[in-house]
Every structure is written in C-alpha cells, then in structure tokens.
Write a protein that binds this DNA or RNA. Structure first.
Lengths: 205, 205, 205, 205
DNA sequence: AATGAATGAGCGTTCATTCAT
DNA sequence: AATGAATGAACGCTCATTCAT
C-alpha cells in the first residue's frame, strides 16, 4: 500500500549514483536528480542535508552493495593455478554484475574513475575508505597466492606476497587502459581481460 | 626592456597549471586565476578564447615541458639490471624535477590525478594524447628489457615485452597508492619507491 | 490568503513588458527586472528558462490581452460610412486602452516599435505571428468595406478589398509618423488621428 | 602609392554599415568590425571616438550616398499617370541600386529596419533627420501629384496633397510587409511591388 | 513526507574603451 | 597612422540551499 521511506531514499541514492557515474559528481546538479527521480528538490533535502552528504551516502551505498570477496575455505578452493583462476574470475564476475545492475548500465565508462576521484577529493575520509578497499582486494589475492605456495604451486624463490601485489597492480593498470579507450566497454570485456592477464602472468612466472 | 607577450601568456599558463593541479579544473574559477596572476579577466580572454581553450593549452604546455625519455644509444647503456636501474631512475628523476619546477611545488598531490581525469573528461582528444603518452613510457621500458634480453640478462623463457608492461603497471599502481596516502608526498619519495619496486621486481623474476 | 504562483509570473511578465517597451529588449537586463520586481534573479529563472523565453512569453501575453476586433454581426453594424467610423474607432479605442493599461503608461512611445522589431529579430517564429496579426487587422477592415459595398455605400468601380488594404497602410503610416515625433504622444492623440484619417479617406474617395 | 586617410575611414564606415544592416547595431561588436576590416581596434578608435560616434557617422554616410529624388523640371516630366510612373520607378530604382551597392548585398533584409530603429533610439537627433527624410519623399510625391493635377490628370474633387501622402504610406506599408516575409527579398522585387501598387492606386482612384 | 517558490553568490563570457608603444 | 595588451563593468545564467506550506 504505502511506499516506505527507505524506498524513496534508496531511489534517490540509486539515481544519484547513476548520474554521478555517468557525468561526474560536479557535473550533476540537483535539477538532474529532480528530473530523474520525479521528486522535488525539497524531498531530496529531506533525506540528505547537502550535496556532499548525498555524495558520501551514495559512496557508502555503492561500497556496501559491492560484493566483498568470499574468503570462506579459500585454502581448499585454491589448490592450483587453474582453480585459482576460477575462483578469482567468479569473484570479479560477481562484483561487476553487482556494479552494472546498480548503475543500470551494462557498460563501464571512463567517468567511473572520474567520479571516484572527485568523491575522494571532497573528503579525506574517503581516501581512507578507498585505501582499505584496495587493501582488502590485495589481501584476498595474497591469501590465494599463499594457498598456492602451500600447495607447492609456485616456483622456488618466489615471494607469494610480492606476486599478489604485482598481479593486483597489473590488473588495475589494464583496467585503466581499457577505460581510456574511445569505445564503450561492456562489462564482459573486463572478464576476458582478467582471464588473459592471469594466464599470461603465470605463464611468465 | 618591456614585458613580452609570450611572458604574459606563459605566466597565465603557469598559474593556471598550478591552480588546476592544486584544486582540480572545475574548482578553479577565473576569479582565482585573476587573483593569482594579478591580471584582469579580460586579459586572460585576450590570450585564451575560453576556459576549455585554457585547459587544452595548459595541458599541451605541461606535456611539452615534461621531458621525454632519452632513448639515444639505449642498447649500450642498458647492459645489465644495475645499469637499467640507473638509466630508469635518472629518467624518472628528471621528469619529476621538471614537473615540480613547473608547479612550483616540491610535493606531488592526489589532485594531480584528479586534474588529469577532469581534463581528459572534457575532450575525447585528450584521451588519445594520454594513451599515446602511456605508450611512449611503455615503449621505453620495452626497449630496455629487449636490450637486457640481448645481453643475456633475462632468465630463460621470459618474454621481455610482457615483463616491460608488467613493470610499468606495477610502478603506476604504487604511484597511485602513494597519492592516496593522507600525508603530503615529496618528490623524493617517488624516486625511493621506484628504486625499491624495480629491485623487488628483478629479485622475484 | 497567499500569493499565488500565477501572480508572481504575471508580475514578472508585466514588469518585463513595461521595461521592454521603455528601453527595448536588448537594453533591458535581468538586473533591471530584478530591481523593478523586487524578486531575485533566481526567481525569474524559476518561471522563465531564459531571456528569450521571457521575451516570447511577454509577447504572447501582450497579444493575448490585446483585444481582437469584434466581428459579431458586423454586416448589420456597418451600414454606412458614419457607422463604420464608429465601429472602427471603438475597436481601436479598446485596443489602445488595453495596451496602455498593460504598460501602465498613458503615452505610446517610439520604443514600442523598436521592441517589436527586436523581438521579431530574435525568432523567425514571431515574424509569422506578426504577419498573421496584420492579416487579422486587414481582414477586419475588408469585412467592413465589403459590408459598405453591400449597402451601396462605395462609389461605382471601387474595389472594397483594395480600399481596405490601402486604409490599413495609411493608418499604419500615420501611426509611425506620430511615433517619430519628438514629444510624448498620449493615447488619445492616436484616436484623433484615426478619426481624421478615416474622414479624409472617404472624402477623397 | 600611399593609402589615404579617407580611404581607411571610408573602409571602416562601409564595413560597419554592412554589419549594422546585417545584424543590427547592438549585435555588432568591435570584434566583428576588426575581423572584417582587418584593422586593429585602436585604428578604429583613431577615426571614431566611440561606437555611438561610429553609428552616427555611418548613418550620415548612408544618407549622403542615398540619392535624393531629382526634382529638376519635374512639372514637364510628369504629365500623365504613365510618365509619373516612369519617373517614380526610375527614382526608386536608383535609390535601391545605390543602397545595395553600398551594402554589397543585392537583397534587402528585415534587419535593415531594425538597424534604423536602433540608430534612432540612440539619439533624438536622428529622429529629426529621419522625419525630414520622410518629408522629402512625401514632398517629391506631392509635387508629382500637383503636376498631374495641373495637367488635368486627376479626377474632379481629388486632393493632390492627400493622394500623395496616401500613396506614400501605402508603399511604405507594402515595403514593410515584404520585409516580414520569411524568404530573402532581392532588390528587384521591390521595384515590381512599386509598379503594381502605383498601378492599382490609380486604377482605384 | 513532500512541494516548489525564492534566494543570492558565483560562474564563464562579452564588450566598449584606454593607452603605451 | 596603427597596434594590440589590458581593463573592468556588466551580462545571461546555474547552482546549492532555505523555508513556508
């Protein structure tokens, strides 16, 4: 019967997120949000005290719905390179799926990065959040590589921790490169890139 | 003598660059530039037809003064890992020196990245420029690694090209990580990071 | 009760119209409108998306409140020259009364024409509107003259349509001439001129 | 060998006139004049103390080069309706030729009127000039009609002076109507209209 | 919970004008 | 005679924000 508060709030968050990712934080005005939500300016101010507050909320919302890597029984699931690859790709696939569902856009655009940086620029607080997010991702890879090491799957003399970090940055770099491409990039292309990069990484070990 | 046209124009460019790097493109107003240059709004419009024109000019100016890697006789200068490291670090040192001199700021801030992304977001053209810039850097590393390979300095079965790319992204990633740190980062810290990363990279080869 | 939206909007329209007629469209700034309405810039933009939109609205407003000639039972009311003159003058009197009430100014100034031309110059659309307005006025005169003809009040061999058109332009011309006079012209003078011109026109037939 | 002062001054006047007639006075900036003359801003200020001064000069220039009706031996040249028509059309043809040569544009645009009104709006002085110009034109027609009357070419009871005035305004009105048409109007169309209007006028007398 | 009228600071930009050379 | 660098007021417009209802 009645629309619940949380629904309206979530609606605003979703719309704001989509707009921020599409055009960048600075380039989105209340006018845009009003138009896309169908609500009034006042309504938005009812839920968020300022644009900065809205930004922070959107960000938390984004992070909360982005799936965290599943580390349950990781040591048993990552026994060799092939199983690592499977686990890693599945994790990434889910993250991307969550992200594109949230934004209602199957493509991932350059503006995504712009939005992240703008957001971070607004508050020192967010810098920390993002740093921790990075650490979580690296940590996940580290645990995978240590598992591989324990299963005797890494060549002699290789440092699992350094390898994990290296792979993380290589993947990040290639992701960035893709965002710089002139054409639109659909989510699936990322998965393919992850596949290939991991494969090359181990081949060259 | 009298102040020459080019001086004023260069003054504006320098001030604009510094402000853009400090606060981000969108956050810099003509008012800011006016205050810092001591000129009038009209004077700036005398030299640049719009803010976007100013941005593009600042960008070209930045790139033109950033030293390109010196590839002269690279095969003779890069004979083993130690000589590679020396050549690489010197190149980077010079680039950073040029950059900090230009900005008049010995530290390198997070906003630097923000400015780059905002600029790129304004024109598809800049995307291409940046892509090419990346390619130049990677190319330089590739030539170094091929030289190492020719001198028999790379382990059997290693692909010089893949290694070069990997190192490039790892360095980029660590650079990014540094920019996310809460404290100000002076240029020297970057050099130290380059040193350590290259060393670890080869140790783990 | 409370002030209704339409009041504010109408207030703005009225003030804008008065200013436009006083100084010409280009010479009226938002500042002027702000000062005279007592509202803020933002408030005006709340109702009109741009100065051009305001102009178009003012124009429609002006035309809508300017009484259209009453053609009800015209054939019975216009039986001879004297009755035509009465009908015509009454129509004009009402139009002028409506106009001066709208502008809050009993005089009609040269700037009125300037405003019209500037407005027309802004959009091809308005050209059409004005053309149609002219046609309506001429049509009214034609119907009057045809009625006169049917009542046998026009000399042999006279073309009612041509006569109507001629009278229209002669009246327009004299109106224009009056606007070029150095002194202020009060609305009543127009009526006198209409009287005399129509009289002379028929005398000379 | 050397370009004479007057040449430069005349160049500026011509360019300014063309621009004013094309776009209206308010819509022409020094920038436009600079671009079209190839001179510098300073040069224009060297010859004209302000934009208003330039406008006044342009106007005098326009009027001085517009041929005045030739009244030499008019009584002998205007003996009947046909000869009147010939004389009148020739006069108008020359005026229009002079005008289009001056503007370098074979078409006559709506903006022409706008420019006139804007100019007049700038100074009360010009109002007088234009009034006198109108009077000259009407005077010319009056002398023609009196000549016709003297040659017994006007019907009994017709007032030559009133007829002349009427014809003047009818022609003016039709001219105005043409300027409101959406399509471009070449000079020749005006001549045709003059022909037809004069013919109709006498036919309906 | 939600509306939308109203604010006012600030934005990028245009413009006529001045003046040292 | 002519240049063009520099000025600064004013312009139309956008924006996040407030608040009475």
């Amino acid at each position: 019967m009645f629309k619940k508060t949380t629904d309206t709030k979530a609606d605003i968050l979703k719309v704001a997120l989509q707009l921020f990712l599409q055009k960048g934080y600075k380039n989105v005005s209340y006018q845009d949000i009003v138009k896309k939500t169908g609500l009034s300016k006042g309504a938005i101010y009812h839920y968020f005290t300022s644009k900065e507050d809205l930004l922070a909320s959107v960000f938390t919302f984004l992070l909360s719905t982005t799936g965290q890597p599943d580390t349950e029984g990781l040591e048993n699931r990552v026994k060799d390179i092939e199983s690592f690859r499977k686990v890693f790709i599945r994790t990434k696939t889910e993250q991307i799926k969550g992200f594109t569902e949230l934004t209602g856009d199957p493509s991932i655009k350059f503006n995504k990065v712009l939005f992240f940086l703008e957001a971070i620029n607004e508050s020192e607080e967010l810098k920390k959040v993002i740093r921790e997010l990075m650490q979580t991702e690296i940590e996940f890879l580290k645990r995978c590589f240590l598992s591989l090491k324990n299963h005797g799957q890494l060549p002699q003399g290789k440092d699992a921790v350094v390898l994990a970090e290296n792979l993380y940055w290589i993947l990040q770099g290639k992701e960035t490169l893709m965002l710089f491409m002139p054409d639109e990039i659909i989510a699936g292309s990322f998965i393919k890139m992850y596949h290939k990069t991991v494969k090359d990484f181990f081949k060259n070990l």
